[in-house]
Design a protein around this nucleic acid. Structure first.
Lengths: 339, 339
DNA sequence: CCGAGTCTTTGAGACGATTCAAAAAAATCT
DNA sequence: AGATTTTTTTGAATCGTCTCAAAGACTCGG
């Protein structure tokens, strides 16, 4: 009810508001006696500094926004935790926003964050073209793209998704698969497009010996993975692919569930490989092979870049950091008989 | 770089700042011609309203804080999504904070949120005693406890964890288990204590026929579940429990992994039942039985209570909403031979 | 063309903290 | 004690927006 302000504290401590502010921000320049008196007044009144007013005056906030594609995907949670760990050491707060793959939601979150004058924004954009983000950056809110390479106008951290797709494809081909399916999402999402391009190139390298099917879903969720899996399971065995490369682990888990519920064995009837290597991949019905990304590191690096830009806006040069994915082989893509 | 303010807009549109403010907040009272002129100026300058200043003046923010025990537990993510869905309809932002079970982190998040003068706070407290929260509420920030019943001084939403524990225990006993282990976390966490109390009462109802072992871990994570699982798997078969009731699904998944890696079959050698029924439970190596909670509904209801309190602070009566859990039986606790 | 109503627009305070030049007080030196 | 330096404290201006009483600009009937 009664929120006290600095003035009331000053009154009670019989000092000026300037002094109270000093006690709060630079206690060492205030004489011990006065300082003590002010602290007492603060405690007695239950005064809590109004960060909003402070921010208005000082001009910069200690909050960064992190807008992700899907909070229910543990991959993004891990990225967020990486970012938060670094933010913690810098007395900074990370607010996590979920665009849920919807450009409208993404836009609304960005507007809100800009209105709040956050220190900066980390974002996994829904779409490849990001004119809004560039305008936003031009207006003064630093932006770092996460898991998505930038055009050069901003910083970015990403993992080489093309390489990831290639690794996954090469692995399946090496295991003897000749009919592979890419279980993907909307090609408008850069990650999906790149992973697809990667597996395509692996298939091309096999010189026509391997066939690649492609399915797309509107979202990269467990439910969509399951739906596609159901359709695949319903195919006659000779039309069915022998391996599926899923655009992420969520889809792979759904796909796997569909196999199980149709009595198809993994990897014998159909091998599966996912992407991200979320913790749940290892705990799946059949432990899931996956292309691993350095999840926490992505988050840490993203916020490092942001903090760097905020600290020295002048001489900051935008950078594109790219990490390499690697392959984690588990049971879902274990060895298959040749031919 | 150049952040424009309302004054610059006013200048360019040749109106007073008051008029610009009116265009922003009550466009209908401004004449169409002027309104148009102002909109043009806004667009031309790329003006973005400073929510910080607005908030300072207006006094209330459109942000609520949600402090959860563990963001990497999908249970809390689902709760958050429920809350966010409602918030969205009220032009309100939810900021998700992770206490990670650490009272210090929790405290720091609360301080930060209070300093930001958020509209209110939804929280799953780390500890049962919540004097801070009561002080916080007394100072004017409404608090709703989530998944934890309140003392009456604030609103709360919760699920009857004692009943949940009882259901789980009764189920295992009915399946013929006579040596059951509770794989728990710190008893200082109310949910853990209640679930334990529940299973204890179920065992008591079996009149001495059933033995209950209890293990505790510092956190409710997959890793801890696995660690306890390792220890259990190492026991000689006749000392080993025949069933484990885990305090949440994360632990259950870890426990299950430990069984698998030691070659113990689930449910034949050891049955497992988890708690929360997160989506990954169904996709586990052995689909996991679990006590289901209405996750999104918890979040929705919590923020509903908060919005209600904010809307009419005077006549608001604190309420304690309690939901019932239910049992989802899957393979991990499937039928076991009698005796 | 006047006066009484409507509509619009204006602009001077808030809101709560920070800053910083300047005043006041205390300490140090002749 | 008086002058000089150092340490503390003061308080007015500022950040960007909203509010609201009051002024100004119209409209319309008589």
């Amino acid at each position: 009810m009664a929120t006290r302000n600095i003035k009331e504290v000053a009154q009670l401590a019989r000092v000026s508001v300037g002094t109270v502010s000093n006690v709060l921000n630079r206690p060492e320049i205030v004489s011990p006696a006065t300082r003590e008196r002010v602290f007492e007044a603060i405690k007695k009144l239950g005064f809590v500094r109004n960060e909003v007013a402070r921010h208005l005056r000082v001009g910069r906030s200690r909050t960064v926004g992190l807008v992700v594609l899907d909070v229910s995907n543990p991959f993004f949670v891990d990225v967020a935790q990486g970012a938060e760990a670094v933010a913690d050491d810098h007395d900074t707060m990370v607010v996590l926003c979920n665009s849920a793959g919807d450009p409208g939601r993404e836009r609304r979150h960005l507007d809100q964050l800009e209105q709040q004058r956050v220190m900066g924004i980390l974002i996994t954009p829904v779409e490849m073209e990001t004119p809004w983000l560039e305008e936003l950056a031009a207006r003064g809110t630093p932006v770092v793209l996460v898991d998505s390479p930038a055009t050069g106008l901003q910083c970015s951290v990403a993992v080489d998704d093309r390489l990831g797709g290639q690794i996954a494809g090469a692995h399946l081909i090496e295991r003897g698969h000749r009919r592979i399916m890419f279980v993907g999402g909307p090609p408008s999402i850069k990650q999906v497009a790149d992973r697809h391009a990667g597996v395509t190139s692996a298939v091309a390298a096999a010189d026509g010996a391997v066939e690649l099917l492609t399915s797309t879903a509107p979202t990269l969720t467990v439910a969509e993975g399951r739906a596609i899996g159901e359709r695949v399971a319903a195919l006659p065995a000779d039309e069915r692919p022998t391996a599926a490369f899923c655009a992420n682990d969520m889809m792979a888990l759904g796909f796997l569930q569909a196999m199980a519920s149709h009595g198809l064995r993994v990897p014998e009837d159909l091998a599966i490989i996912g992407y991200d290597d979320i913790d749940f991949a290892a705990a799946a019905a059949v432990p899931l092979s996956s292309v691993r990304q350095p999840r926490e590191l992505l988050g840490r690096t993203a916020i490092d870049l942001l903090l760097e830009e905020v600290a020295e806006p002048e001489q900051h040069r935008h950078r594109q950091v790219i990490f390499q994915p690697d392959l984690v082989i588990r049971e879902s893509s274990a060895l298959r008989r040749e031919g």
